[in-house]
């Protein structure tokens, strides 16, 4: 099923691409840039200094004497390295979960040994009494599965995959994402950059999952899917090779919006002081330092400009049209 597509970009979208490309490039080469100061080194002789003042602080310093230019550059790196992987991971998880839920619904029967295997794993993960029992049961189930490959598998109960995926997504969506991330970060007593990446991913996958599921419900009933089934193509192959490429189309326009959401969330968390460790530069934290020195306009202006242009650029990309 070949589809010829061409892309047409407006000037706004070209500028958006250029800006986002620049951000990614800056993020990639930030440690190698010839910056006069590192973001972790305070210049105590020039605290809360305005731009173009003495000491080669071209964009000024914050209330702790850190160079604003350096904080912006490394804040860009943080933003890119956090939000881009988080959005990609969330899109992958959401696509797989939503695609599977939409394709198989609640109809798929799973062999009993898989249920036992999952129960054993859950027993061990949840540290239920006598945790050794979990791996033992799982091992027995695994052996049964190996044996069943030679024999005819025995179908077990139905797996309510759609209900599980949509239930988890609804449960996550019912709590405001900011509240959820703050609560999780607080319960962990602070988060590392990797921890925040995991948190962002965990809270961002429901939207792609819903979109892909909705598309999959349509795709699975299309004639080519029926034809593949009639030709005896295995179900998983139809799902992966034929249905999924069509089902993930909505993510193309959703991905930039997902980035916008994650970028805003990361900045908000840093602004509130519950996000990244203090030594990691962030636009949100730079904005927050304006509260300590309300006359230092540059602490608010520069990161806000960066954030606003980035969000507008991503929004512009989300509106692209295919011809």
């Amino acid at each position: 099923m070949a589809v010829l597509t061409t892309f047409s970009f407006s000037w706004t979208q070209k500028w958006a691409f250029a800006w986002l490309g620049l951000l990614v490039a800056v993020a990639a080469v930030a440690p190698a840039l010839p910056l006069p100061y590192l973001p972790t080194v305070p210049d105590l002789a020039h605290v809360a200094q305005a731009p173009l003042g003495p000491g080669r602080h071209w964009l000024g310093t914050d209330v702790q004497g850190r160079d604003v230019l350096s904080l912006l550059v490394f804040g860009t790196r943080t933003a890119v390295l956090l939000t881009l992987p988080a959005a990609l991971l969330a899109a992958c998880i959401g696509a797989l979960a939503g695609g599977a839920a939409g394709f198989w619904g609640n109809r798929r029967r799973v062999e009993t040994a898989y249920w036992v295997l999952a129960a054993g794993g859950a027993w061990w993960v949840l540290r239920l009494p006598a945790p050794w029992l979990g791996p033992l049961v799982a091992a027995l189930a695994g052996a049964r599965l190996l044996m069943s490959k030679r024999n005819r598998p025995t179908p077990g109960p139905r797996l309510p995959l759609d209900a599980l995926v949509m239930g988890a997504a609804t449960a996550l969506d019912s709590i405001p994402r900011l509240v959820l991330v703050v609560a999780m970060a607080a319960s962990a007593g602070g988060v590392s950059a990797t921890g925040l990446l995991v948190l962002l991913t965990l809270t961002a996958w429901p939207t792609p999952a819903r979109l892909v599921r909705a598309q999959m419900l349509r795709v699975r009933a299309l004639p080519f899917a029926e034809a593949a089934r009639a030709a005896g193509v295995p179900e998983w192959r139809i799902w992966l090779r034929h249905a999924m490429p069509h089902a993930i189309k909505p993510l193309e326009s959703n991905f930039p919006l997902s980035l916008v959401s994650l970028l805003s969330l990361e900045s908000t968390l840093s602004f509130l002081g519950v996000g990244l460790p203090p030594e990691i530069a962030s636009w949100g934290r730079l904005m927050a330092s304006f509260r300590q020195e309300p006359s230092a306009w540059w602490l608010l202006a520069f990161p806000t400009i960066m954030l606003v242009i980035s969000i507008l650029s991503l929004n512009a990309l989300a509106r692209w049209r295919r011809i």
């Binding site: 972790t40 305070p42 702790q64 602070g190 203090p278 030594e279």
Partner: peptide, 28 residues
């Protein structure tokens, strides 16, 4: 975490320690 002065001292200590190769993590 709510004390700006302590944050500045910790940051300065971290930077100076890093300059001589001692890794310091901050925990507000």
């Amino acid at each position: 975490a709510d004390e700006q002065l302590f944050a500045t001292i910790a940051l300065q200590f971290q930077a100076a320690a890093a300059s001589i190769g001692v890794p310091v993590a901050l925990l507000p």
